[in-house]
Amino acid sequence: MSINFDSALGIHADALRIRSQRAELLASNLANTDTPNYKARDIDFQSAMKMAASGQSTGGMQTSHVNHIQPSSAQFNNPAVQFRIGMQDSLDGNTVDEQVEQAQFMQNSVQYQASLDFLGARFKGLLSAIRGE
C-alpha cells in the first residue's frame, strides 16, 4: 500500500482552504465597513465543504478569451459565497455589522487553527509511519 496524501490528509486540507477563503471574505467585509451600498458576504461553509468533498468543480465564472479578466481570488468564483442578511442596515445601504463580522472572523480563525492542528497531526502520523518508529 502506497502512501496517498489525499486520503491521508482527509477533509482537513479542503477545510483549511475554505477557512482561509472565508477569512479573506470577512476581512473585506470589515475593510468596507464604511463603504456606501456595500453588501456583506460570507461563505456557506457546509455547502462549500460538500462541493469540495464531491470533487465538483466550483461552477463559477469561466473565461473564454485570453483578454477576459481573471478574478484574482476565489471570492467571486465560488457559488457558496452568499450575501449576509443584515440585522440593522444603515441608511447608506451598507449591511456590514462590525460586531457580527468580528465575531465570525474570530471564530473562523480559531477553526482555521483547529484545522491546522488536525493537519499537523496527520503529518506527524505520516512521518512516524515513514520512520517506522
Binding site: 479573506e24 471574505l25 476581512a27 473585506s28 475593510a31 468596507n32 464604511d34 463603504t35 456606501p36 456595500y38 479578466i69 481573471q70 478574478p71 484574482s72 481570488s73 471570492q75 467571486f76
Partner: peptide, 19 residues
C-alpha cells in the same frame, strides 16, 4: 472622502474586496 468597494480592478493592482 468617498469610499467604494473594489470589485475587480486587476489592472490597477487592487485586490478584490479591498476598499
Amino acid at each position: 472622502p468617498v469610499f467604494a468597494a473594489v470589485l475587480d480592478d486587476a489592472q490597477q493592482g487592487y485586490k478584490q474586496g479591498s476598499v
